[in-house]
Design a protein around this nucleic acid. Structure first.
Lengths: 229, 229
DNA sequence: ATGCATTTTAACGATTTGGTAACAGTATTT
DNA sequence: AAATACTGTTACCAAATCGTTAAAATGCAT
């Protein structure tokens, strides 16, 4: 997801806070909208479906805790990350925040740099959870992919794959039939910082074709590869 | 199939699990029913024909494995997806689950978000659960254009098209009957920086006429082309 | 460090694709 | 009917893309 497509809803009853936090986050390229109390927050959240909600705990009309609970009840917002703004030194242990479904706390006074890096960290979590769930066992066609033990079983035969091959297969098989663009594969298997040569994917595909079976991997020229059953 | 028409049968002997998992899934809009042991599960499955069964492995009366085998024997339920709930760290290598016909495992402890995205992923396998990919699969006349899998299906026959041809067809078929000007086609399929000769579009249209059928592509002299059903 | 497995690169060949040119065909205008 | 303008068709070439291989680089464990 592009940074500028990330929507953040900022909720606080102090206009100063809204402005300074909003300013710093918009500098980073996020889409910011604001609300000044819990009710407004819930309404806007439903309408705008933000990816992240930053909620002051103490507010008139409806406090942050309750707003958080309300937001958590909305199915469309199940992936939304909620973080509280709270005064430093409050007793976290008896805070109802996490019970209400919060993901994190940010303490006042707010340091812009800290805030921004915290937000980045939280949104990274969003990205991770959006990508397919990593940790378990899936059967797809004649293949069982065991992500826990890093092995695959095909017709009862166990096959141990090296990490990159395993992850590549794992990705392709996570959506049989879907074509994964080369770019997408690089993003998800290699990570978008690493730069590898143009033939790297092909070589790994070739090894998979050898080990798993030629017919399972189909090339779509100019686009990418797909796994077929 | 609409999300709210998807039936999920949840089987566990611990009421707490039933409640928390059931709650989270019903928030997503699925129809939930529950059973607290294997016998009940098989009975309910036969009656309700759920699309997905989430089955605890260890239960009184009849364990998950046997319940799974029973369910798999029912012809009506051949398309039902079955997934086990299992404690993390168990010895997967000697698990009888996949032999019994399971499609997946979900490990306890259960994180609601993980569970929900897992369930979504599994239900995506149901051919007709067009939840979110609806926009990427378009039916026009006797042709189905599948942008996810980069293929088109005509009268049940799969046809793989090269990229430019696919995109051209995709564009024209996106508005059957509408005439696309040559200029417009160049913009959308080739991109307005690239300059190609005057006969390029014609050649591609010709290839489509060969592969898809002559009558589908109508020439409007002096203007452009349109796709007709 | 040494050896082994994995990953990446580089080079080359093979294949597919996209694009052009040339000409034939067809409609449109004069 | 002739001239004009546009499209259809074909064969061919160039560029893009992919497959394969071997060797170099990297990582990893002994």
């Amino acid at each position: 997801m592009k940074k500028k497509d990330v929507k953040i809803l900022l909720v606080d009853d102090e206009p100063d806070i809204l402005e300074i936090v909003g300013y710093n986050l918009s500098l980073e390229g996020y889409q910011i909208s604001t609300a000044s109390n819990g009710l407004e927050a819930v309404t806007k959240a439903k309408k705008e479906k933000p990816h992240l909600v930053i909620l002051d705990v103490m507010m008139p009309e409806m406090d942050g805790i309750e707003a958080c609970e309300q937001i958590r009840k909305v199915p469309d917002l199940s992936d939304t990350i909620i973080t509280f703004l709270t005064a430093r030194g409050e007793d976290y242990s008896q805070m109802a925040g996490f019970d209400a479904g919060a993901d994190d706390y940010i303490t006042k006074p707010i340091k812009p740099k800290v805030l921004v890096s915290k937000v980045k960290a939280l949104l990274r979590r969003l990205k991770d959870s959006n990508e397919e769930v990593a940790d378990d066992i899936v059967k797809v066609g004649d293949i069982v992919i065991n992500r826990v033990e890093y092995k695959i079983i095909q017709n009862g035969t166990e096959i141990i794959l090296p990490r990159k091959e395993f992850e590549l297969l794992s990705l392709l098989a996570s959506r049989p039939g879907k074509v994964f663009k080369r770019e997408e594969i690089l993003d998800k298997v290699w990570g978008n910082e690493v730069i590898v040569g143009g033939r790297t994917i092909d070589v790994h595909i070739r090894k998979l074709r050898e080990k798993i079976g030629d017919d399972h991997f189909k090339t779509i020229k100019g686009v990418g590869y797909k796994f077929v059953l």
